[in-house]
Design a protein around this nucleic acid. Sequence first.
DNA 1: TGCTGCATGTAATGTGTTACATGATTTG
DNA 2: CAAATCATGTAACACATTACATGCAGCA
Lengths: 179, 179
Amino acid sequence: MNTLGYVLLSLLSVKPYTGYELVQIMQTASWQAKHSQIYPLLAKMEQEELLTFEHVEQIGKPNKKIYSISDKGVALLKQWITESPATPIIRDEFLMKMYAISLTDTETAKRLVQERLSTYKEKADSREAAIKSLEQENNENIKDITSKHFGRFIFFERRLRLEKEEISWCKWVLSLLEK
Amino acid sequence: MNTLGYVLLSLLSVKPYTGYELVQIMQTASWQAKHSQIYPLLAKMEQEELLTFEHVEQIGKPNKKIYSISDKGVALLKQWITESPATPIIRDEFLMKMYAISLTDTETAKRLVQERLSTYKEKADSREAAIKSLEQENNENIKDITSKHFGRFIFFERRLRLEKEEISWCKWVLSLLEK
DNA sequence: TGCTGCATGTAATGTGTTACATGATTTG
DNA sequence: CAAATCATGTAACACATTACATGCAGCA
C-alpha cells in the first residue's frame, strides 16, 4: 500500500464516497490525484478487503460505486496515523517564478501576483463556507478530539490559515511593487 | 523541457551552482528533486545550450561541475515566468493524518503535533537566518524589484511566513488537545 | 449543436524515488 | 572504526499525468 491508499482510507473514514467524489475532495485537500490513479487503486483496495462498495444504479446519470472503509481498513489506517509522517512535498511553480522575478518587468510581476491573489481569495472564501457548514451541521463540540468532525475541523482551519497567509503576502508584495 | 528544468534555470539565474548544491537548495525551496533526477537533466540542458559548465578539479574531494545559465537559458526562463503558473501541488502526509485524527488517542495526537511543531521551529529559525544574511550581504535595497536579490527576498519571506503559520496552528491545536 | 457535469475505466507516457556504484576526508 | 560530507552518475522501479473511450442529461 502506498501513501495515496492511506489518504483514501483517511477520507473514507469520515463517510462513504464514490471515486468521483474523492477526486473532487482531494483537489482542495493536502493530496491531489487524478481519477485514473484513484479508480484502479479503489478496486485493488476492495480486493484486499480494506474497502467495500455498493453498486448504485441511476437514471439519467452513469451508475456509481459507493465505497466504505472496512474494519480491516480502519485498523490499518489507525496504525498508519501513529507513524511519523514523511516531510511534505511542495511543488509551487508560482513561487519558483518569484525566485527569478527580477528578470521580468514590474507590470508582469504585478499581474502574476494579482492573479495569485484572486485565486487565493476564492479559495479562502469557499474554505470559510466549508468550515461554517461543518460548524452548523454539528451542534456538538467539534473542537474536541472525541468529536468525529474534529479532524476535518482542524484540517480545514489549517488550509484556511494558509490561504489567508497567501493573500496577505500577495498584498505585501504588491505594496513593494507599487513603489 | 519540463518544469524541473525551468526551476533549475530559476536557481541558476541568481548565480552558478553545482548539481550537488542545487539539490541542497531545492530541499528548502518550493520544488524538491533528488540528485538522480538533477544530474541527467543538467547534462541534457547543457547539450541544448541552456547551460554551460566549468570543470573544477579538487584535492581531497571529488571533482565538480559548476553550471551557469546561458543567454539562451535566460531568454527561455524569461518567457516561462510570464506564463500563468500551474496550480501548486501539495502532498502533506501529516495533514492527511490530521483529517482522521479522531481515530487515535489524545496522547498520539499530541505527540504528532508536537513533532510537527519542533520541525517547523527549526525550519523557521534557519529561514530567518537566511533572510538576515541576505539583508546584511547586500546594503542595496533588496525590497526593490530592480535588485537582483528581490526575488529571493520575497521568496524567503513567503516561506518564513508559511513556517510561522504552521507553528501557530500547531500551538492552537495543542491548546485544544489540552482540554 | 456544442459544452459541462456525472461517472467509470484503461493505455501510454512522463516524472520521481530507491537502489547500485565509487572514493577520499572529516567528525564522533 | 563507523558514519557523514562531498560529488557525480546510471538502472530499475514506483508513482502520476495525459490521452483514449463511453454515454446520457441539462444548458446556452
